[in-house]
Design a protein around this nucleic acid. Sequence first.
DNA 1: CTGAAAGCGCTTACAG
DNA 2: CTGAAAGCGCTTACAG
Lengths: 331, 331
Amino acid sequence: MISIRDVAKLAGVSPATVSRVMNGTANVDEVKKQRVQQVIQETGFKPNEAARTLYKKSAHLIGVIVPNIENPFFNEMAKAIEGEAYERGYRLTLCSSNDNLEKEKNSIELLGRMNADGIILLTNEEEIFDQIADARIPVVVLDRAVRHKNEVASIISDNYEGGRMGMEHMLDAGCRNIVAMRGPQNLSSGRDRYKGYLDICREKHVKVQFVDCLYDYEDGLRSTEQILREYPDADGIIAANDMAAISAYKILTRHGKRVPEDIQLIGFDNIIMSRLMTPELTTIAQPITEMGSKAAQILIDHIEGKEVPQKNIFEVKLIQRETTRNKVTKA
Amino acid sequence: MISIRDVAKLAGVSPATVSRVMNGTANVDEVKKQRVQQVIQETGFKPNEAARTLYKKSAHLIGVIVPNIENPFFNEMAKAIEGEAYERGYRLTLCSSNDNLEKEKNSIELLGRMNADGIILLTNEEEIFDQIADARIPVVVLDRAVRHKNEVASIISDNYEGGRMGMEHMLDAGCRNIVAMRGPQNLSSGRDRYKGYLDICREKHVKVQFVDCLYDYEDGLRSTEQILREYPDADGIIAANDMAAISAYKILTRHGKRVPEDIQLIGFDNIIMSRLMTPELTTIAQPITEMGSKAAQILIDHIEGKEVPQKNIFEVKLIQRETTRNKVTKA
DNA sequence: CTGAAAGCGCTTACAG
DNA sequence: CTGAAAGCGCTTACAG
């Protein structure tokens, strides 16, 4: 492999000068600069990042830790993060933790050893923050509201408002017997959505009816069965998220219920799949791509020494599609 | 940050000895070893990977380049790759190229500069191989049949046999007017699936009917419309892949066609979504996870100097679900 | 503007 | 078994 010394020799300058030309880090005599650039061209010299990293203690690397990269929600986030990071000259290294705390910890340790510049965290393990503090790497928390020392910022959408909007829409759509799936209560998104739902119930004097449900397909199946058992006359389901809504649609269909004629259904997130499925899913949209980009942007801004907003809350909005009916005017 | 010299000092040995203890690369006196390990424990010393990389010219890093990480197929592959790589002590850096050749090239160049040990390639840009040759990094090609110099191995499933199986199943299911979506002909998977379909047509004396279709949702929509226009009496569609089948289902439903009563539908790939959708999709399954793992395994084996099989072809199999009917016994 | 020198934090021949 | 030394390939004070 050709090194900076080789280039220097060929161009008749010192390695320091070559470095200065490459990085534009100081003025260099124009003709020498030309010569250096020419030699770089001709030899196809590529600087060794490891050497650079060793000196600068920065690998231009961002670690992204997601619970499961297969999940469309994280997946779309990851894509947005990757896009933004790439634009800014950072690479991304991925860890799909699969709820394996050991793996998460290992990944963070390794990130430290690799001189990663920052971490974007989409998981919720409290324990992990010690590890992060240890590695002394700035972290941006995405879709989670945690408070911790090296946390630079958090990016989240307005789940509370989304919870309200979902319930309001079901009421507007004419549902009179709504059951909510309450999302995981160890996550702020689950808590806030549920709180929004509750507040509308109170304001409109509607009975609170819910079952618990995780954010995944399997548990969506289970909890829909539970709803059908415990609330056989339900005419509306507010799913914990889109994935659970996909499960709900399947179970409802299995039981011969038509959506939205017999029972209406709303999701949360607006993952791509919600639009691909048939019927298309009504849902509360989080701006997933914007949130992912923002996370990368804020982290990199911070890495580069800029001042950065700590709390970043994105608006959600109702996207009405085919699993709920249009607003019915009261008789 | 604490370095190997600090550890050495505290343990009363030389840095070389600490290195030997950490890496188990030579015998070290038992009591010194104990002391070193103790100091490492107490100080929480973590070796700097950049320094190690600089010397060894290996970052224990694998680059994965996919056309689009959002696509469930690549996504599931990526997860499998990540899992295997992690087990073997390699990290993974991700590039979602979005069919941007420039980005792909940049990524590969950067991979070289970062001392990446290998690349797993899921894209099909011919041009890119020059870049790879330039970077002198071994590459394993996944789901693509390309032949090139630094290509260590290729992993692929038996698309030809899958093409045959799909068509045979449609015939068995009682279809008499089948239309195939012919996948992208610049990809071996598209060519081979189509070839399998053709051969069954010939063997069974069935008319060849097809439209062209890319592997994505949008084009699936378009090409299904085309089928309905050009072959209004079709009673079976062989989709280019599962994603296109998802589109087809939507368009068919829009046109008031029931699946499988009026028209039967089969996909290809067995992405997770094919099982989540309602009705569940009949499809030809590729062992996506196994293929991803294998790719990582083979690449790492090669990196570590082992001999490795060049061609790796995985079997496909029919998974009959709800969009086709059971075998009808001939009258 | 520019080069010689030191240093980033490891690893591994080389001697002993 | 073990340490001193050199080297991996850069970057940046420091002098001039």
